[in-house]
Computed example of a mutant assay.
Amino acid sequence: MSTARPTHPEIALALLDLQRKHQEARAVADLRNDDESIAQLAWAEDRGTATLKLVTAVYGWPGRTLAGEAGADAAWWLAQHSDDPAFQEQALELLQEAVQAGEATRRHLAFLTDRVRVRNGRPQRYGTAFAVGVNGIQAFEVEEPERLDERRAEMGLEPFDEFDKIVRLHIKLPPTTA
């Protein structure tokens, strides 16, 4: 983990601001779930995607050197929550290269890998993607579930059972009607 000053702190600040705006819009949308809050969330996602597309087109993946640790985290967040499947796939390729170069975390790569695979109708590899359905919170299908914790450990993730408990504590289910 690098503590050096990023080469482009202005990019880090922009990415962090977009991440904050997305998180705020998401919290409001989760709470209110009305047309206005959903539109604000969509705007935040679109703005984050557009900015990250521009940054990656000019500089490549905004890793630790370019954007610092916090900026690199924000870049991953924006890619993870992008509503543009083609861009998410491109971001995944760039993130893979950044991980190999020591510029990004394997943890982020695991999450984005699962997001892209689930979006494409494929089983996830690392057990990071969940959905809320009629049976409550469920992880999407996992390829080779017997090797899941081994793959998770390789990516710096906690065992699946621990992560599952964390997810269930943090995802708020809508109230049921009796």
Rank of each mutant, 00 (worst) to 15 (best):
V28E: 04
K53S: 04
T49D: 05
A25V: 04
R47N: 12
T51Q: 12
L41Q: 02
L52C: 06
A25E: 01
Y59D: 03
T56S: 13
G60F: 04
I38Y: 09
A25M: 06
A50Y: 05
L41H: 03
V28Q: 05
Y59K: 06
W43F: 12
A39W: 05
D34R: 06
G60E: 00
L52F: 11
L52R: 02
A42G: 12
D34G: 10
E45D: 07
L52V: 02
N33H: 15
T49F: 10
A25Y: 05
L31D: 10
G48F: 06
Y59W: 11
A42N: 14
R47Q: 11
D35Q: 11
W43K: 08
V28W: 05
T56D: 04
A39P: 03
N33K: 15
A50S: 14
T56M: 15
D46M: 14
A44C: 07
N33I: 09
T49S: 10
L41V: 06
K53D: 02
L31V: 06
Q40E: 04
A44T: 01
T49N: 06
G60K: 01
G60Y: 03
I38V: 13
D30M: 11
A42E: 13
D30G: 14
L54Q: 12
L52S: 00
D46F: 15
Q40H: 07
V55H: 04
A42C: 14
Q40I: 02
E36S: 12
A29S: 14
D35K: 12
N33G: 09
V28P: 02
T56K: 07
A27Y: 01
A27G: 00
D46L: 14
D34Q: 09
D46I: 11
Q40F: 09
V58D: 07
L41R: 04
A27P: 00
V58Y: 14
R32V: 07
S37C: 05
D34Y: 08
D46R: 15
V28R: 10
Q40R: 08
K53T: 01
A39Q: 09
D30R: 11
V28M: 07
D34C: 08
V58H: 13
W43C: 06
D34F: 13
I38Q: 07
V55A: 02
G48M: 03
L41A: 04
A39G: 04
L41E: 00
A44D: 00
S37Y: 03
D34A: 10
D35E: 08
G48Q: 01
T51G: 06
G48E: 00
E36M: 12
A44K: 00
E45K: 12
L52M: 05
I38L: 14
Q40M: 08
A42S: 14
V58P: 07
A39K: 12
A44S: 07
L41C: 07
D30V: 03
T49L: 10
S37N: 03
R47G: 03
Q40D: 03
V28I: 13
T56E: 10
L54R: 13
E45P: 03
